[in-house]
Each structure stands twice: as structure tokens, then as C-alpha cells.
């Protein structure tokens, strides 16, 4: 409890990010109870502007946008977190194994990581998705997860390499701990902040990736997600006919949720690099600098006066 408080103290990005992300999770989870209408049914005339009855207006096919955006959150968030989880698990497994075992295993795993790292991400995913036909949320989560790990794996390896050299790892070896226990119990807990950071980063990428795939029409158009909402809005020329709410609402949802994850990620960086947290010290430094400047000015002035006196 104390440590949670300490984590958020002076860490505004983490606090704001957490609030945004948890609000989205809560709203999506409660969608069946708080959504005013059935998201899949026609409940009004098409393209009704926002009103008291339909707070965020209706789509061209007469569906309630608010209800849709809440239900869509369930799919988009699930895909984001699921593929973030897949990517993080692979990154941790490969990165830490590579660092701890070393030698040929390390060389091979890093070769594999580098190959995946240079594969152009989105184009490859587009090709894969096109090859598989209209892909459902599950396939999208798998594709994004299986291609989203290489950057994380490299960071994990670097961190694990530095922890591996610590004496407590040697001490664990000397008392006879097994290798997997050293990795899981001694090394991994020291990497928690990095793992959480990698997870938020991967989930962020997945949410954006899913929206991109669905927007260009590679997803299953019958599933309600933020991406397909954008897809239908584009298909029905929502902006051209002046139904801005149809396109803007899912767009803002994606942007705000992505910002929440990015802020959370920034907050995690502050833990592993406390230098980023230096706002308070920075103020002190500025104050000190101002004093120094003022002193210097005073000295110059007095010297000037002294010079005038001498000349005079």
C-alpha cells in the first residue's frame, strides 16, 4: 500500500495514465449495463446528430454511437492487452534465457530477434492479414503479439545481463539454487518495472495496429471495435455528409486510450531512471542559478563604480 503511494507521488504521468486506462477498462467492462441501447440494433434514423436521446449521435445505419463505442472498447482493449501479454511473455522468455544461458544459445536467439526486428512491422502484418482473409479479433491479437516482441526482447536481455553480473546471483549459484529458480526468483523480480513498461508499450502498439488493420478493411467488419467503427464511418463517407460524430468518437477513444498507455509507460521509465523525476531539484537548481547571476551582476556593477572612481 505504502509502495503504491510512493510510486504515484511526484509521478504525474503514471497517475494520469493509470486514471485514463482504468476508466477505459471500467467503462468497457460495464458496457452491457451502462450502454443506453443495443449496439448492434437499429434504434433510430441514420446519422442523427448528438442529442439528449443519443448523446453521441447515430451511425448511418441508425445505431447508437455511444453504445457502439462502449462495446467496441471491450474488443479493442482485449485485443490490445492479449497481444501485449503475448509479446511481453515472448520478450521476457527469449531475452532472459539469452542473457542467462549465454554462448551459442544467446547468439542464436539474438540472431532470431534481429531478423524479426528488421522485418517491417505493419506492411508484414497487412500482407499476413490479407493472406488470411477477413481476420477476427483473436487472429489479430495473435498476429500482433507474435510480431511485437523483438524490441522488448533486446531490452530484457540487456537488463538481465547486468543483473546476472550482480553478486547475489553468484551467491545463489554458490548455495546451489537451480538455474530456472535463479532466473524466475532471483533475476525476474528485479525486472518488474521494465516488464510492466514493455507490456504497456506492446499493448499500445497492438491497439493502434488493430485499428489500422481494421480501418483499411482487413478485419472482420461484423465485429464492433474502434477500428471497424472507423472503417464503417469511412465507408459511409461520414465526414463528407457532415456526420463528424460517427468518425471522431472512435478516433478520440483510440487516441485517449493510447495516450493513457503512453503516459503509464513514461511513468514506468521514471522508476528505472529516477533522473527523469528531477522536477523538484530542477527548481532548486534554477533558484541557485538566478542567485548566482544576480551576484555576478552586482559585482560587475561595483567594479564599474570602482573603475569610475579610479579614473575620476
Amino acid at each position: 500500500m505504502k509502495s503504491i503511494f510512493a510510486f504515484y507521488r511526484g509521478n504525474t504521468p503514471a497517475l494520469m495514465g493509470s486514471i485514463i486506462v482504468f476508466t477505459f477498462i471500467l467503462l468497457s467492462a460495464l458496457a452491457p449495463w451502462i450502454a443506453p441501447y443495443d449496439a448492434e440494433k437499429r434504434v433510430a434514423r441514420g446519422h442523427q446528430p448528438p442529442s439528449a436521446e443519443h448523446i453521441l449521435g447515430t451511425t448511418r445505419s441508425g445505431k447508437d454511437v455511444l453504445s457502439q463505442v462502449l462495446y467496441a472498447g471491450r474488443i479493442s482493449l482485449t485485443v490490445g492487452f492479449a497481444s501485449g501479454l503475448i509479446a511481453t511473455v515472448i520478450a521476457v522468455l527469449l531475452g532472459v534465457t539469452s542473457a542467462y544461458v549465454g554462448g551459442r544459445v544467446d547468439a542464436f536467439l539474438m540472431f532470431l530477434t534481429n531478423v524479426f526486428l528488421v522485418l517491417p512491422g505493419l506492411p508484414l502484418i497487412v500482407v499476413l492479414a490479407a493472406f488470411l482473409g477477413e481476420v477476427g479479433p483473436l487472429s489479430i491479437a495473435l498476429i500482433l503479439g507474435l510480431f511485437g516482441w523483438p524490441g522488448g526482447a533486446r531490452v530484457m536481455r540487456a537488463q538481465a545481463l547486468s543483473i546476472r553480473e550482480k553478486e547475489f546471483v553468484t551467491a545463489a549459484e554458490v548455495i546451489g539454487e537451480s538455474k530456472w529458480r535463479i532466473v524466475v526468483v532471483e533475476i525476474l523480480p528485479n525486472m518488474v518495472s521494465l516488464i510492466v513498461g514493455t507490456f504497456t508499450g506492446a499493448a499500445l502498439g497492438a491497439v493502434m495496429g488493430q485499428a489500422a488493420l481494421e480501418f483499411i478493411g482487413l478485419g472482420d467488419p461484423n465485429v464492433i471495435s474502434w477500428g471497424t467503427m472507423l472503417f464503417w464511418a469511412q465507408n459511409n463517407s461520414a465526414l463528407i455528409v457532415g456526420a463528424w460524430w460517427d468518425a471522431i468518437v472512435p478516433g478520440v477513444a483510440i487516441a485517449v486510450f493510447a495516450m493513457g498507455l503512453a503516459l503509464l509507460n513514461m511513468g514506468m521509465d521514471q522508476i528505472s531512471n529516477p533522473q527523469l523525476k528531477g522536477s523538484k531539484n530542477l527548481k532548486q537548481w534554477k533558484k541557485l542559478n538566478d542567485e548566482l547571476q544576480a551576484n555576478r551582476k552586482k559585482k560587475q556593477e561595483s567594479r564599474k563604480i570602482a573603475g569610475e572612481v579610479v579614473e575620476g
Binding site: 550482480k166 553478486e167 547475489f168 553468484t170 551467491a171 545463489a172 526468483v185 532471483e186 523480480p189 528485479n190
Partner: peptide, 10 residues
């Protein structure tokens, strides 16, 4: 180094 030989998380 007694600071390095005990795991800080345990």
C-alpha cells in the same frame, strides 16, 4: 560487497 550479495527484492 554485502550490498550486492543480497537480492534487494527478497
Amino acid at each position: 560487497d554485502p550490498y550486492g550479495s543480497l537480492n534487494p527484492v527478497h
